[in-house]
Design a protein around this nucleic acid. Structure first.
Lengths: 123, 123
DNA sequence: CGAATACTTAAGCACAGGCTTAAGTATCCA
DNA sequence: TGGATACTTAAGCCTGTGCTTAAGTATTCG
């Protein structure tokens, strides 16, 4: 099957793992080498490398190699786009609640143009 | 291996699937039945049910059955907690940048107490 | 040069995720 | 009552994820 894969898919998936979230959390306090990032964990370096690859492919982390040391940094724009996706949905929901509140409070029983309410609900 | 599983794990994992994000998106515009939610997709109803279970176990969606119809709604608090996690990391990162900016701009070359900078970076 | 360091790659394994089909149960309506 | 409707559950399949071990390469230092 052809799988449609978004940037958002990769970002959410990357953040769904606690080890990777811990790595992101560490990187918000400044860049770090692969060994630095691996130090807090009981996993092998290879495992951490794989987590870093997931984070990089999601655009959440970037890295560059200088000599034999690879330094990783977070990429805040990717973080932002995930945040924005959620924020948009939450505000859509809240606006809807406001609109419902107005309809319930408003003393003006103007007739609806369509048989179903504008919110799509069926009371 | 014992797997430590957070609420945040489940929420991010739930949102990592495009079908499930589409369901969440739909629900921000108002409650819907399982069939309503399934209608836009080429999948079987069973597949959608499984997606809904993931969303419910992540706390992102709630549902109640009335007669033979199950009506689903989003649970905005779970959405908020995911948003907050990201927001906190992003602001940590931005505050760090501000601090660095001040250090670079500030004309006061007061001696650092430690050999490494407070940000943990090694220039 | 040669050994230690810092990653990097590859293979393999156990298990979870996302679908399907093929049933089943519980309403609702004529 | 009987059939259509709206889920619900279970089994199976295939792929992907998260680790491991066991190598490898490239730098740096004595």
């Amino acid at each position: 099957m052809l799988k449609y894969s978004d940037d958002l898919d990769k970002a959410f998936l990357a953040l769904a793992d606690p080890t990777r979230r811990a790595i992101v959390d560490r990187l918000t306090r400044g860049p770090a080498s692969v060994s630095d990032l691996a130090a807090p964990f009981a996993f092998t370096l290879a495992a951490i490398m794989q987590h870093l690859r997931v984070l990089e492919q999601a655009g959440l982390v970037s890295s560059q190699k200088q000599g034999r040391v690879r330094t990783c940094s977070i990429e805040p724009e990717a973080l932002r786009s995930v945040e924005d996706w959620i924020s948009e949905r939450r505000t859509t929901w809240e606006r809807r609640l406001d609109r419902l509140g107005l309809l319930l409070d408003g003393p003006d029983p103007a007739p609806s143009p369509s048989p179903t309410s504008p919110t799509g609900e069926r009371p």
